[in-house]
């Protein structure tokens, strides 16, 4: 349980949010040409990192907007929050 600083609403309790999983998984541009292996990679395979991971969150019980987060999954410490479409922080 932790506080999340929504880029649109400010700091709110984590239970207002819905986690959306790993971020920056690009939707296939040409789905008809994808092989089964590539579909599996896109749909199911996840990095599931222990450490700093980039992920999507949705302020489901607030502004309902999506945003990105860099969070250390080993201790739930939030490193950075950035908007959809922005590049992940390098540090």
């Amino acid at each position: 349980m932790f506080l999340i600083n929504c880029p649109y609403c400010g700091e709110r309790d984590q239970q207002e949010f819905k986690a959306g999983g790993e971020a920056h998984i690009e939707r296939p541009k040409q789905p008809t040409e994808l092989s089964d292996d590539e579909w599996a990679e896109y749909l199911f395979m996840r990095k599931n990192i222990k450490g700093v991971q980039f992920e999507r969150w949705n302020h489901a019980h607030g502004c309902r907007k999506w945003f990105n987060m860099a969070r250390d999954t080993s201790n739930d410490e939030i490193k950075a929050i950035y908007k959809m479409g922005e590049k992940p922080p390098t540090q």
């Binding site: 349980m1 819905k18 986690a19 999983g21 790993e22 222990k50 969150w57 999954t73 080993s74 739930d76």
Partner: peptide, 14 residues
Amino acid sequence: TDDYISYSQKGSHQ
């Protein structure tokens, strides 16, 4: 389960 990935062995109170 909580809906976010975590290795912290701690879950949310709610």
